[in-house]
């Protein structure tokens, strides 16, 4: 079993765990964390990919992709956290599927 394959299978596993968290966890924070875990899974796959070149020279593109992905994930996480905090302050709820007490008309 090659290194790449270990990374790939591991990444897929981590990705699945994150997906489950994003789908099934009710708490907003859990969902945000779940999304981050999904990202980590993919980054693992990508990093391993950089090594898998015919001539053995590291391919820079996947690494650039991972870096970009991390930046994007950070931004998304920040936005998610700020929304979660504000929502909790306004309604006292940490679960999107519950109707907030007062949903005004506008």
């Amino acid at each position: 079993m090659s290194t790449y394959l270990i990374y790939a299978v591991g990444g897929a596993l981590i990705f699945s765990i994150g997906t489950y968290a994003l789908l099934a966890q009710r708490h907003i924070m859990h969902k945000v964390i779940g999304a981050n875990i999904m990202g980590s899974g993919i980054f693992m796959v990508l990093i391993a990919l950089g090594k898998r070149t015919p001539d053995g020279v590291t391919d820079p593109v996947p690494q650039a992709m991972v870096l970009t992905g991390i930046v994007v994930t950070v931004a998304l996480t920040a936005l998610g956290l700020s929304i979660a905090k504000r929502y909790y302050t306004l309604t006292g709820l940490d679960d999107l599927d519950q109707d907030p007490p007062a949903c005004d008309g506008r």
Binding site: T19, L22, L23, A24, L96, D97
Partner: peptide
């Protein structure tokens, strides 16, 4: 429209 159901459907 409940999140878990809809998102699972997407997956």
């Amino acid at each position: 429209l409940r999140w878990t159901i809809a998102a699972t459907t997407f997956v």
